[in-house]
Amino acid sequence: MTRIFVTVFAWAVLFFLVAPLLVIFPLSFSSGEILTLPVPGYSLRWYEDFFLTERWLDATKNSFIVGIATMIIATVLGTTAAYGINLTNFRGKTVVLALLSLPMVVPLIVTAASMYLAFSVVGLANSLWGLIVAHTIIATPYVLITVLASLQTFDPNLMRGALSLGARPVTAFREVVLPLIMPGVAAGAIFAFATSFDELVIAIFITSPGEFTLPRQMFAGLREFISPTITAAAVIMILLSFILLFISEAVRRRGERLTAGKVKQ
């Protein structure tokens, strides 16, 4: 009896989680202007609108520019910092770690407002550079976490061995360390990109129409007038999340296989 109740309850909750996302798909292919079900007929007009309107295309382009730049900077800075943190038990390690993960804990609205106020003073507000800096800061904690986790299983003797054989430190890192912690680095990179691509609150504060990202443009669209083009944009974003989820799962599996293999050795 309890068993049946739990099963039905769980499936109801899972339905609640997924159904709203599924509803967007038929709506985005609707031929009508009113967002309701059942749709009057199917068409691609809203996708056409998305791919032919400059502000949607610009927003998509901006999102990719900021997302990729954030991913690269956050991954490089996060990976080197994680390696440095893992290298020794220096004094102040816990303080540094706490400081570096602070952007994850501070409410995003406070971060956004503070960055807006301070970035305005130095001329970083209303520029893609400002947004890249902001996104890098909120994305690096994820890189730190994933890379630190994969460094846990890394044997420092391998690095010592490479150095004793005459490899320069940078070469040794690239040839020995990096391949082994790659799953963590890749997972962090995907997380960084996804964080930037989905981020809206900071974008609301520090972008003006020329620098709108895709979420920012959707937000503007929802507030001003509800054009069904928003559903097409939403579907495109869902598909992208799906791809990112797929890649991250593949990376995770690979990482697990790698670690499992090492335990066996």
Partner: peptide
């Protein structure tokens, strides 16, 4: 530990300049 600090420094600088200082300023 000097190498440790050297590797952490760029990220630490970014977080302090782009996050800690703005929050303090606010």
């Amino acid at each position: 530990s000097r190498i440790s600090w050297l590797l952490i420094a760029p990220l630490l600088a970014l977080v302090v300049a782009g996050f800690i200082l703005p929050i303090g300023y606010t």
